[in-house]
């Protein structure tokens, strides 16, 4: 557990997760593109034909930006939460820096996230949105989301070893978040008295920033650009601290 080759281990763990995910499937990595496209099509149909929704132009881009960001958050958080339990063979038999397991799971999901961001950018350009200077902020914002999920995953993956209920808590939290992150509605539609609640939701903040930049061509609110890094980095620090404490007894509980 006192090794100096973290980078190499991390790269190997990420490539393992990435390779295994779609191995032996004929469409392979295309599923990363197909999944959000199908969801986008269904949600666009429902919210333009069944519940006519006139407020947003290019509704499918709005939906896709929400979906891509939320999907990454939810998938990587859920799979990283069970990453310690799922690798109990490694935990019990191989001395390694264990925090690499949840982090590698999140980063492997980030590769799919990257592919889906590519899809989003492609469709946005196709819909006629132009590249502007604020696009330079996009990688930073996405990176901060990854940092945030890593922190969250370190906490829940460690707790899941002691209380297996944690995975179901995470699952339920994600179901709730699907509705509380503005995926198929816009910020403008949220009644003002609830808006302050949304401020404290980093996933919603990422969606808001992403839409502001791509669809409105403007700078995201400054308060958001301060809160997001503060929240993300402190979560990561908290995650590492808590994980360090809890990991000593992992082998006894698995």
């Amino acid at each position: 557990m006192r090794r100096k080759n973290y980078g190499f281990v991390l790269r190997n763990l990420i490539s393992r997760d990435f390779k295994i995910r779609y191995r032996n499937m004929s469409l392979g990595v295309f599923w990363s593109l197909l999944n959000p496209l199908v969801m986008m099509a269904v949600l666009t149909f429902v919210f333009t034909r069944i519940f006519p929704n006139v407020a947003v132009k290019n509704f499918h881009i709005s939906i896709l930006s929400g979906l891509v960001i939320f999907n990454f958050f939810s998938l990587s958080w859920q799979s990283a939460t069970v990453s310690i339990y799922g690798n109990s063979g490694l935990i019990k038999r191989v001395p390694l820096a264990r925090e690499l397991l949840p982090v590698a799971t999140v980063l492997a999901n980030s590769l799919h996230f990257l592919i889906q961001i590519g899809l989003l950018v492609f469709l946005a350009l196709l819909a006629g949105y132009a590249v502007n200077a604020y696009w330079l902020l996009l990688p930073v914002i996405f990176a901060l989301e990854i940092v945030f999920v890593c922190g969250l995953a370190l906490v829940t993956s460690a707790l899941d070893v002691y209380f297996r209920d944690v995975r179901y808590v995470v699952e339920s939290a994600n179901t709730v978040l699907f509705w509380l992150v503005p995926i198929f509605y816009s910020f403008a539609m949220i009644p003002p008295e609830y808006r302050s609640v949304y401020q404290y939701n980093p996933v919603a903040a990422v969606v808001l920033a992403c839409r502001a930049i791509i669809m409105e061509g403007r700078m995201p609110p400054e308060s958001l650009l301060v809160k997001l890094p503060v929240v993300s980095v402190s979560f990561l620090a908290l995650g590492f601290l808590l994980f360090r404490r809890l990991q000593r007894k992992f082998a006894d509980y698995l």
């Binding site: 080759n5 190499f8 281990v9 190997n12 490694l90 191989v94």
Partner: peptide, 9 residues
């Protein structure tokens, strides 16, 4: 993967 886990660069 295993070589990395066992500490090889």
């Amino acid at each position: 993967l295993n070589a990395a886990l066992c500490g090889l660069t």
